[in-house]
């Protein structure tokens, strides 16, 4: 049993004496299947607690996006919405996303959004969607009759763990131009076979860990912020936060996934 005082850190959230970052949240109206917007909430708070201004622009399917961005976030969606998102990405937003990511903007692409950042995605019906090719990878859905990859997932990342939940039909295979983000300890990851989970290409991160990924993995949240800040304010170093609450949830979730912290 334990008592915590919550919310104190929020009192001074309007003080923004630090650097300023821009974040484009892509298609929240189409791609928020697993409450993926929790990742944006997490980044907003972690910036506010440090006095960093994070300007979030929600980009709808039909919106134009010309301003360069420091960060991109995209979540997962239902099949039909994913098809629309694929269309919007290629016809309206491919240029700015490609330009900014090549220039060092950080990206977090989750689940369906992750699949669309590869070269291509063949869905359960056999429809092939071209992706943006941020990651050198292809995703194939083996068909509606084949079991989905569902469950708690834990993996190793930079000497620590990432913990989350995955629920995807598609199997992703990386090419030579992309590296896996992490190594699966428990769960399926990219394809349930090669032990890889997610992908990294420069400052872009893709993963099947969905929904509340960043709140329970504060080290990954700060890793994304650090990458975004490197370009904007190279001298600035991210102040540590009191993450007791986050790590307690992280450890509890690892335990529920059947993974012990010492490994």
């Amino acid at each position: 049993m334990r008592r915590t005082r919550l919310g104190d850190a929020l009192l001074d959230e309007r003080v923004t004496d630090g650097p300023s970052l821009s974040l484009a949240y892509l298609y929240p109206d189409l791609m928020n299947l697993y409450a993926d917007r929790g990742n944006v909430t997490c980044l907003q708070r972690r910036c506010a607690w440090r006095g960093i201004e994070l300007r979030v622009t929600t980009v709808a399917w039909g919106d134009s996006l010309d301003e360069p961005q420091d960060m991109y976030v995209i979540g997962g969606g239902q099949d039909r919405q994913q098809r629309a998102a694929s269309d919007g990405l290629r016809h309206r937003h491919a240029d700015c996303i490609g330009r900014d990511v090549a220039d060092g903007a950080a990206m977090l692409a989750v689940c369906g959004g992750y699949q669309l950042m590869g070269r291509s995605y063949r869905d359960a019906d056999g429809t092939v969607m071209d992706g943006l090719g941020i990651f050198d990878m292809e995703t194939v859905h083996p068909g509606a009759d084949v079991a989905r990859c569902i469950g708690n997932i834990a993996c190793r990342w930079q000497g620590a763990h990432l913990i989350g939940f995955e629920n995807h039909g598609g199997r992703t295979f990386l090419g030579a131009g992309a590296s896996p983000l992490a190594e699966v300890v428990k769960g399926f990851g990219n394809n349930g076979r090669d032990g890889g989970e997610g992908a990294v290409a420069g400052t872009a991160v893709g993963t099947y860990l969905h929904g509340s990924l960043l709140p329970k993995n504060p080290h990954l949240a700060d890793h994304l912020l650090t990458m975004a800040l490197r370009r904007v304010a190279p001298e600035y170093s991210l102040a540590p936060l009191d993450d007791d609450v986050e790590w307690r949830a992280h450890r509890a979730a690892l335990g529920i996934a059947g993974v012990s912290e010492r490994r």
């Binding site: 915590t4 929790g38 949830a249 979730a253």
Partner: peptide, 23 residues
């Protein structure tokens, strides 16, 4: 999943009018 709730409530900035959040 009490600890997941604790993170959610922290990021929501919930402030009870009395006492601390008990987990």
């Amino acid at each position: 999943r009490a600890f997941d709730l604790e993170v959610r409530v922290k990021y929501a900035g919930v402030r009870p009018t009395e006492g601390d959040v008990d987990v």
